[in-house]
Amino acid sequence: MIRVGLIGAGYIGNVHLEQLVRIGGVQVTKIVDNTIELAKKAATKYGIESYSSDWKDVVDDPTIDVIHNCTPNKYHFEINKRALLAGKQILSEKPLAMTLEEAQELWELSVKKNAVTGVDFCYRYYPVVQEAAARIRNGDLGIVRMVHGTWFQDWLSMETDYSWRLEKAENGDSNVMADLGSHWFDLIQYLTGQRITEVIGDFATLIPTRKKPKSQVLAFQHIEEVDSEEFRCELEEYAAVHFRLEGNIPGSFTTSQVCNGRKSETAFEIYGTNCSYAWNHKDATRLWIGHRFKANEELIENANLMYPEAAQYAVLPAGHPLGYHDAVKHLFEDFYSAIENGAGAEDTMQRPTFFTGYEEMRILAAVLKSVRNRSWETI
């Protein structure tokens, strides 16, 4: 039995817990949150034997094999580094760290310790996204010509909306690009098999003054009538990036969290010499396939019609849709299989590791530099 300690009992921590109870051979034995009430609530709900408000109680526990780091960004580096030094395997939330230098140190340390690591880039684990990647690898798309995508949400569209992600001290130098952009660029690099080489970015803070509640607010929680104070926001809720993939392939990406009516619409479009692929998170079981001289197609998640490497993730009969929790579960299963197989600190595009997190921080650092300089920047 692999013994797990989880740090951070907020929104994403509960997502992790929901999936960990579905995986055989894994047991969460300790949970930590700096708000002890949240730790106790999660421990009671999931039957976890102990809880604490000090993350060191988990990292320094010799009986714990794996750490799930579900904390805000400012804690990622310290917790991940101490866990690696303690000989733990680690699955961390993204972004991997607050700075590129921190992310590089974590990747290099994971190699030195030969640790199995993971970063929760879960969107690549939807079955039809896996199918698009398999088709591209097998040449069905032809040569990639261009890439486009968006990610729109509305949970920060009012001045009364607040999140720790809007504060530099908690989150780092970027909000929406670090949060949603890291997910989207992971998707594109995984799908195409090509790495981002150049970027030019544009950021905007659309609601510069907000009302910050004096009491704790969890992710995606909307509270209107609370005691609050004025908060000056320095980070962006809008970002647009033009980029080039290897081979000088052009692409563009736009994201924002202030788009009323858009809850979490993640989309990509990949245009090739033979056909085109498009996917939108709101219709996550459908892959659009575009043609010029014959009717367009739509593949609905179905293991019988998919490449074997993608079909392994379509675990229900056709017509029984898998969702966000299942994508997270698939990532976790790959992570724990790597532990069982003694994979160590392997560098693979198939499974997101600390190297993947480091790569995403390289992209973010280049975008931030581009925004400051208003120029193209090389990665």
Rank of each mutant, 00 (worst) to 15 (best):
K212M: 10
K212C: 03
P213R: 12
P213Y: 06
K214M: 09
K214I: 08
S215F: 10
S215Q: 09
Q216N: 14
Q216M: 15
Q216S: 13
V217F: 02
V217E: 01
L218V: 11
L218M: 13
A219Y: 14
F220S: 01
F220I: 06
Q221S: 03
Q221N: 01
Q221W: 03
H222M: 08
H222I: 03
H222R: 05
H222T: 06
H222A: 12
I223L: 14
I223Y: 09
E224I: 14
E224V: 15
E225T: 07
E225D: 11
E225M: 06
V226M: 04
S228G: 12
E229S: 15
E229F: 11
E229H: 09
E230G: 13
E230C: 07
E230Y: 06
R232I: 13
R232L: 05
R232T: 14
R232F: 08
R232G: 00
C233D: 02
C233L: 05
C233R: 07
C233N: 07
C233P: 01
E234I: 13
E234G: 15
E234L: 12
L235C: 07
L235D: 00
E236Y: 04
E237K: 10
E237T: 15
E237W: 04
Y238K: 09
Y238A: 07
Y238F: 14
A239V: 14
A239L: 02
A239R: 07
A240W: 04
V241S: 10
V241H: 06
V241L: 08
V241Y: 06
H242F: 01
H242Q: 08
H242C: 01
F243A: 10
F243E: 04
R244V: 01
R244Q: 11
R244E: 05
L245N: 09
L245W: 03
L245C: 08
L245V: 13
L245D: 02
E246R: 01
E246P: 02
